[in-house]
Structure formats: C-alpha cells, structure tokens
C-alpha cells in the first residue's frame, strides 16, 4: 500500500534547515511519499541530498526528489521582486516538493508545470 503524506509549509516554517531536513527524511524513511507545500532553499536541497547519502544502508537506498514550480518563468520584474521579498520573509510556499523513498518511487519525471511519479513495481509494504 502506498502512503502519501501532505505537509503544509507551516510545519517546517519555523524550523532550522537542519531540523527541516531531519523531519522530511524521517517521514520518507517510513516508506511514505511526502508532498510538501512550497520548496526548500537551494542550499537545503543540496543538504538534503548530502544527508540522504549519509543515511543510505541496505534498507534505505536513497530518495527521488521533484519540485514543481509553476511561477518559475515569471517575466514581470515587479511581480518577481514582490515574490522574492515574500519568500525572504515567509519562506517559499509556491509550488510543491515531492520526496519519496527510492525503494517505493522509481522515477519522478518533471517539467516546469507537470510532475509524473512512477512507483517501483517490486515495492511491498
């Protein structure tokens, strides 16, 4: 059985980067697919990959990660500036981040406006 857990951004908004990543990884290591409102900072995404590598063992094989971010190609400079200011103050709540354990999620295919998630047929809960 697949479990999808939704997490509103508010649940991580007040946490340090370290605690955010720990929280996300803890859920993914329970074999759940996590759908997070918004996105991590770029540096946090890299840190998430680093921490994932540190935790890989015979049971945990890593993660699949995808971010859908429809506003990425915003051309209006004023809107872009406004959005950046809001992100700076409140965190980036636009779009969604999907993180799944590699044993469950085989592949995440994405383009700026669409995400396709393929599960592993071998997965048994």
């Amino acid at each position: 059985m697949l479990t999808l857990e939704f997490m509103p951004y508010d649940e991580i908004a007040q946490l340090s980067s370290n605690k955010r990543i720990s929280k996300l990884l803890r859920i993914v290591k329970e074999n759940k697919i996590l759908l997070l409102e918004g996105r991590l900072k770029k540096e946090e995404e890299a840190e998430l990959i680093k921490r994932t590598m540190e935790e890989i063992d015979e049971d945990f094989k890593g993660i699949e990660l995808g971010v859908i971010f429809p506003g990425e190609k915003e051309s209006d400079m004023l809107k872009k500036l406004k959005a950046n200011m809001v992100n700076l103050l409140l965190g980036d709540r636009r779009g969604f981040t999907i993180i799944g354990p590699a044993t469950v999620v085989k592949e995440i295919k994405q383009d700026p406006n669409k995400i396709q998630l393929f599960t592993n047929s071998k997965f048994k809960s």
Binding site: K42, E43, E45, A46, I49, G66, V67
Partner: peptide
Amino acid sequence: KDPYTQVNITIVGNLQA
C-alpha cells in the same frame, strides 16, 4: 537523456546561489 531532473536543477541552483 532528459536534462530536466531535480539533481541537475539543484546543481544549477546551488551554483547560481
């Protein structure tokens, strides 16, 4: 291969940052 993967986006984003 498809270049639009999160690993590539994360590498590019981190270099930009």
